[in-house]
Amino acid sequence: MKASLTRRACAAALVLTATMTPAVAVPPDGKAAPADRGGVQARLLGEKIIPHQLTFRNTTVGGLSGIDRDPCTGDYVMISDDRSYLQPARFYTAKIGVDRSGVHSVDFTGTHPLRQPDGSFYPPPTAGDGKAVDPEELRVDPRNCQYVWAQEGNRPKSAGEPVVQPSIQFATRTGEYLGQHPLAPHYRVTTGDWGIRRNQAVEAITFGGGGGLLTSAVEGPLLQDGLEPDLEHGALIRVTQQNRQGQVRGQFAYPLEKIFAESDPTSPWGPDTGVPAILAFPDDPDRYLVLERTWVAGAGYKIRLYDATTHGATDVRDMGSLNGREVAPMRKKPVADFDDLGLSTVDNTEGMTWGPTLPNGEQTLILVSDDNFAENAVTQIVALGIR
């Protein structure tokens, strides 16, 4: 998310369980029913801070907003959200050394630019030709180890600014364009008070069902689905399951939390919140880890992880608007509040992937933060143990 860059420039764990609370009709504030506790736990294994503005093969490492583990190599792929301002829009490959005692190393092994259909690089938004991209997420297809990446596009904030539709694209392992996955219903930039909000489009995708299902989520509520979260109320965002051909299996409302603290009244920036990443459970394509990231001026970041399911949730694919409608949202349980993990800092965490299974049976979860290329931010690799 780019709003954080502007704001920066200007200015143990909870538990996880497969037994969810019953589905309920969501009230107008979009708040889900409280979750009980018990079951599988998450704990901090360790973290590693990547040096700021690290140079790798003539590129600036930063803006890492998505991460996935390559099942063909065991290495990791991380996408940068540099919109070709510093260097062409790109991704990195890396080896991450992690075990039960921590994160020991992060060694970058490669980088490749993302290519347009004609083979050229994506231009920066300043080109004004409507071809710019805003890369936010990358997943490795478990069936062929090619890449699928999502970008938010652009909803103009002023006359003359080009519209760039969000997209989910297929690419080779070296970044060449292979095609596009059909956008889910309602995932487009439209005119008036309808469609995706600016900078709150497709920022989260994940494979489930052995690669047979691609799930995507928009970062914030659609314009027609209601107001953004505030101190009193949460909101509903849309999560969509599609097969490999793009046919919709279901679309569901996920309840986003309310804002956790008041903003510094002297700041010109309001709160910034949303879902930057989702991750399907290996054994249940209808169950997800959902990452919620919130920034509040004067209070910093609040990063929370939830276990959520579509089981029992209302299919909303045919609902033009959720505003004022009673639907059964996805049920969720808290997994971790990063303030409670003992990290050196809590920053702009935006990407997550399953890592290797440890000898004690724990499944590792690897997360990465987006430093927005800002001096007072960090690129942080975090490893959690899930059991």
Rank of each mutant, 00 (worst) to 15 (best):
M1S: 13
R8L: 01
V15L: 10
T19E: 14
T19F: 07
M20G: 09
M20H: 13
A25T: 10
P28T: 15
P28W: 12
D29H: 05
G30C: 09
K31P: 02
A33G: 03
A42F: 13
L45W: 11
I49T: 14
T55Y: 12
T55H: 12
G62I: 13
G63C: 05
I67E: 06
I67Y: 08
D68Y: 14
R69S: 14
R69L: 15
D70R: 13
Y76S: 14
M78T: 07
I79V: 14
D82S: 08
S84Q: 00
P88D: 14
F91T: 11
T93Y: 04
I96E: 03
V98T: 04
H112N: 14
R115N: 00
Q116T: 06
Q116H: 05
D118A: 10
P123M: 04
P125I: 07
P125W: 10
A127Q: 08
A127H: 01
K131I: 00
V140F: 07
D141H: 14
N144W: 00
Q146K: 11
V148R: 14
W149Y: 14
A150E: 07
G153H: 02
G153E: 01
N154V: 06
S158W: 09
A159H: 05
G160T: 04
V163S: 11
V163T: 15
V163A: 09
P166Q: 06
T174R: 11
Y177H: 13
Y177W: 12
G179D: 06
H181E: 10
A184F: 06
P185K: 04
R188I: 10
T191Y: 11
T191S: 14
T191N: 12
G192S: 11
G195C: 07
R197G: 13
Q200D: 12
G209E: 13
L214P: 10
V218C: 13
G220Q: 09
Q224K: 02
Q224D: 02
G226C: 03
L227P: 05
P229T: 09
L231Y: 04
E232S: 15
A235T: 03
L236H: 03
Q242N: 12
N243V: 00
R244Y: 00
Q245T: 13
G246I: 00
Q247I: 07
G250Q: 07
Q251Y: 02
A253P: 01
P255D: 07
L256T: 06
I259M: 03
A261C: 10
D264K: 04
P265W: 00
P265Y: 02
P265K: 00
W269K: 00
G270E: 12
G270Y: 03
T273D: 08
V275M: 05
F281V: 05
P282H: 13
D283H: 13
D286Y: 01
R287W: 01
R287I: 01
R287F: 05
Y288Q: 02
V290L: 11
E292C: 08
A297D: 08
A299F: 08
I303D: 00
I303L: 04
L305H: 04
D307Q: 09
G312K: 02
A313K: 08
A313T: 12
V316F: 10
M319T: 06
S321D: 07
N323L: 11
R331S: 15
V335A: 15
D339G: 11
D339K: 04
D340R: 15
G342V: 04
S344A: 15
V346A: 05
N348Q: 05
T349G: 11
W354Q: 08
L358G: 09
S369G: 03
V378C: 02
I381K: 02
I381D: 02
G385N: 00
G385V: 03
I386M: 07
I386W: 02
R387E: 15
